[in-house]
Amino acid sequence: MTAVQEARARARRARVTASAAQAVAGTGAGVAAGLPQGATATAAETLPREAPAPGRRHAVVRGVAPARPDGWAPAPRPRPRPRLRRGRVVAVSAGAIVALLMFAVVAFHVVLTQRQFRLDRMQQQLSQAQIDHAELTLEVAQLEAPARIVSVAVHRLHMVNPPRVVYLIPGDHPTSHKVSGVPAPAPASTASSSTSTTAGP
C-alpha cells in the first residue's frame, strides 16, 4: 500500500466514524463516551442505554440497524405517535375522498352535459326528420295531382285519351265474352304516340 492509498483509507475511516458519532449525537452519548477516532465498533454496541426516569414517558428508540462492516449505521429516527399518525391517515383519506367526489361530480356533469347535447342533437334530428317527412309527403301529393299527371301525359309523353272505352264482360263460357263498344284508333292528329284502348273488368 502506498502512502497515498494509506492516507485515503484513513480519511474514509475518519468520515465514517464522524457520521456514526453524528448519528448518536441526539443521545449525547457518543461524545460523552470518549470514543476514539478510527474505532470500528458501532455506536449502539458501545454506548450504554439511558434508563428511563420513573413516571416519565420517553420516546422509545427501537430497531436500530446493525452496524455494517464498513462501520456505517443509519441514524435511528423517532417514530410518530399513533394518534397523530391515525389522524393524518384519516385526513389524507378524507381529502382523497372529497377530491374523488369532486372529480366524480365534475365527471357526472360532463357526462350529463354531453348526454344533453346528444339529446338536443337527436331531438333536432327527429324534428328535421319530421319536417323532411312532411315535405316529402307534400311532394308526393303534388306529383299525384291530376292536373300535373294530365299535363305530363299529354305534353311530355304525348298521350291521348282513348276515343272509346271497350269493356270485355266475361260470360259463363270463355267464348261467350260480351264486348261493349268497338275499339277505335285515336284521331290521327293526336295519335302521335300511344293510343290505348282500355279494357275494363
Partner: peptide
C-alpha cells in the same frame, strides 16, 4: 287517402 290539404312546418 290522397292528400287534399296538409300543413308543412
Amino acid at each position: 287517402g290522397t292528400v287534399l290539404a296538409m300543413s308543412v312546418p
